[in-house]
C-alpha cells in the first residue's frame, strides 16, 4: 500500500483540499487501487523513449511586444467575492 492516510493528508494539504479523517481512509484505498492499476505501465520497456508532452509537432508561436490588454478592472473584478479599492481581498497572510 504505497498510499496511507498520512500520505493522503499530505497530498490534500499540497492540493489545498480539506479532507475529513474518515474520507482520508477511503481515498487512500481508492488511490491505491488506481495506482496499482496504472502500475501496468511498468510492463512497457520505455528505455530510450523520449517523453511526449505535446502532440502538435510545431514550436511555440510568439506574440509581438505590444500592449494590447489590461485597463479592464471592471472585468477583472466582475466576479470577485470580496474587493476594496480595486484590490482583491483575502484573509490576512502572515509570512
Amino acid at each position: 500500500m504505497p498510499v496511507d492516510k498520512t500520505t493522503v493528508a499530505k497530498i490534500a494539504r499540497l492540493a489545498r483540499i480539506y479532507i475529513s479523517d474518515e474520507r482520508q481512509q477511503v481515498l487512500a484505498t481508492e488511490l491505491n487501487g488506481i495506482l496499482s492499476w496504472v502500475d501496468e505501465l511498468n510492463e512497457v520497456n520505455t528505455d530510450n523513449v523520449e517523453p511526449l508532452a505535446s502532440v502538435t509537432g510545431h514550436s511555440l508561436p510568439m506574440r509581438e511586444d505590444v500592449v494590447t490588454d489590461g485597463d479592464r478592472i471592471d472585468e477583472v473584478l466582475a466576479n470577485v467575492p470580496e474587493t476594496t479599492s480595486g484590490f482583491f481581498v483575502v484573509p490576512k497572510v502572515v509570512e
Binding site: V38, L41, N42, V44, T46, V49, E50, P51, L52, A53, V55
Partner: peptide, 14 residues
C-alpha cells in the same frame, strides 16, 4: 515513475 513514464508510453502509442 508515474508522469514521465506515462509520457514515454504516450509516445509509443503515438
Amino acid at each position: 515513475a508515474y508522469y514521465l513514464k506515462a509520457q514515454r508510453v504516450r509516445r509509443l502509442i503515438r
